[in-house]
Amino acid sequence: MGDTNGDGPAHNGGRSISLRRVSKVFLPAANARVKAIDDVSLLVPACQFVAIVGPSGCGKSTLLRLVDGLIMPDSGAVTIGNSGPAPGPGIGMMFQTVRLIPWRTVRDNVGFALEGGPLDRAERKARIETQLLQVGLGRWADHYPAQLSGGMQQRVALARALVGRPDVLLMDEPFASLDAQTRELMQEDLLALWSNHRPTVLFVTHSVDEALLLADRVIVMGRGKVLEDFLVHLPRPRTTADARQARTYGQLRDRLWSRIRALVLADPESAFFGRGGAQEPKRPQ
């Protein structure tokens, strides 16, 4: 992973991600078993942008943790490139919450991802400043997280995930809490960044539109399984406006949305369980 942390070329490209028959069980309480990830196999080629959608509690965050190497599968294997997953700056992770260190300035929060790495002090400093400018936080480098708006905090978290020049980028509903305008701008920035550096991206979202705007491929998860997996054939570069005008967009959106709707309605723990004649979402392969 050392080279990904060095000053490589702008197009450093991604690494592939592969899950082979991965399962992860949690035991949240005595005699309770949650199959958070249930025998999932998935192959993501290098540089692909994958959106993951699915109802709450279906295992999306757990999947990202497995890929980041923060937790180990109970069975099966996760492979990144040609090695096992190892947390570090080579895999950029944006958690579902911003997780900024409150007693560190914006600059030092971003720099945290480089500490203990191979860069010397001057290189590190230059890299941090560049990254802060890229996410538009140059003026805020000396502020503390509590002094920033929610959207700015998200940008800090994004900068921290990117500063190590990761070739795998894992994003867990990164823009969910943003207002509509900020979200669109952040989406544009992310796309620009992705087309420059071409990392492999797993992007969790609840928004069908966001998935279709950003991704090459959308995966629908439900109860720890991958239920649907399809490619998004929309021309790039995409913007929100012209993506929505494409004819295929409407078809894809309908298909995706009806699938998710069925999943939610079939989930006995959902508040909408059983409404509107939902069928059991059985679909092995």
Partner: peptide
Amino acid sequence: ADLVEMARSVGARRARIFRAIVLP
């Protein structure tokens, strides 16, 4: 715990996590 997990994800080991997250 969230910050500790974040620190693990950027590659920090026990000693650094203790110094940078837990103690402060």
